[in-house]
């Protein structure tokens, strides 16, 4: 059953079907929040909030766009509400702490962890807008057109933002490493 078919059932009162959508998307959503905020507990709360909102607003689902577009719109609202309320918290500071992978030699692991740490730091230094567009395009398996609908902007703007975000990421990464990831 497609996402939209499931959501239509949820909308029409068979709310138990939301369980299937949860299974399909809670990890992706968690990834979206944790990469954006760098905060694991906050991200779990936000995922819960998104599914709560899906229930609350199920009557407003029209299915004109894929379910994921609607879900990420709710996710952005949940995140904005959260950081508006807790003004002293910022979405990202240093990135999340690395968890170890087991199949590497200790020296390789150290190097890999260092690269990841720097990349996360570089990501954390981007503006929220740029970090968000990179996360949506790189990790959420969304097309530019879908991202445009989520962010409510034309596809051309999404592509330009991805490009600028990558350039900024490169600059920040260079500052952190001193490495020559040469730009034009």
């Amino acid at each position: 059953m497609t996402d939209n078919e499931l959501m239509f059932q949820v909308r029409d009162g068979n709310v138990g079907k939301l369980g299937q959508l949860f299974e399909r998307y809670h990890e992706k959503l968690y990834g979206f929040f944790v990469r954006h905020t760098g905060k694991r507990e906050t991200s779990e709360d936000l995922v819960q909030d998104v599914f709560f909102r899906i229930l609350k607003y199920r009557q407003t689902f029209r299915g004109e766009a894929p379910f994921t577009v609607w879900m990420y719109q709710l996710a952005r609202n949940a995140s904005a509400d959260y950081f508006r309320k807790w003004k002293h918290e910022t979405p990202m500071t240093e990135g999340t702490e690395e968890r170890q992978s087991d199949d590497l030699l200790p020296s390789e692991r150290v190097q890999e962890q260092e690269e990841h740490r720097l990349l996360k730091q570089a990501l954390a230094r981007l503006s929220d807008e740029k970090r968000e567009v990179l996360i949506l395009s790189r990790y959420q398996e969304l097309k530019y057109e879908e991202i445009g609908r989520i962010l409510d902007c034309p596809v051309g703007t999404v592509k330009a933002r991805v490009h600028y975000a990558l350039k900024d990421l490169r600059d920040e990464y260079m500052k952190l490493t001193g490495a020559d990831v040469k730009q034009s």
Partner: peptide
């Protein structure tokens, strides 16, 4: 490199 960043699990 971005795709090499490990996925976090809830």
């Amino acid at each position: 490199s971005l795709s090499a960043l490990p996925e976090e699990k809830p």
